[in-house]
Amino acid sequence: MTEIADIVLLILMIVLAVAISRMHNLFMAAMMMGIFSFLSAIIFTLLDAVDVAFTEAAVGAGVSTVLLLGTLSLTTREEKVAPKNNALALLVVLITGSALIYGTLDMPMFGDPNAPVHQHVADRYIEKSGEEMGIPNIVTSVLASYRGYDTLGEVTVIFTAGVGVILLLGYIWRKEDEQ
């Protein structure tokens, strides 16, 4: 049942991605991106990644749609219709895509418990994190403790991006706001 739902949702996502790519109304494309994110969040739930699904639903369908719409209101809503045919781009994409699909032939099958990705540190996290950290959510203990360095780096990236946006678009507070 999970597998059927997974495949149906993936097909829906591909159809939606093609539609977004061909659409000239950027306003509609931004709204469609929200639906696209929601579909991916459902797939994440089916694949047991509840924390990821949670984040994707809040970020993809909420904040990023608002930011895209904000940009469109400051620039333009309609994409200019490109007259030329992009045969070269299509060729590049087809070659890259077939190389990548050739590469996936060596990948382990879906859900295989003996796949290389499960042989490294994951077992240790699952067995030991309960007694070492005293909290049941393994994702949180890996995120904040075992891989605390990574997360510190990610938070710094978010901080830097925020500072960059403030510098690019001007200060977010002005004197008249304070009164």
Partner: peptide
């Protein structure tokens, strides 16, 4: 993490909406 993420998202929204 929560404080930084919330503050950055609000700051970005204010920067876009205030322009």
């Amino acid at each position: 993490v929560g404080i930084t993420v919330a503050a950055v998202m609000i700051a970005i929204f204010f920067a876009f909406a205030g322009r």
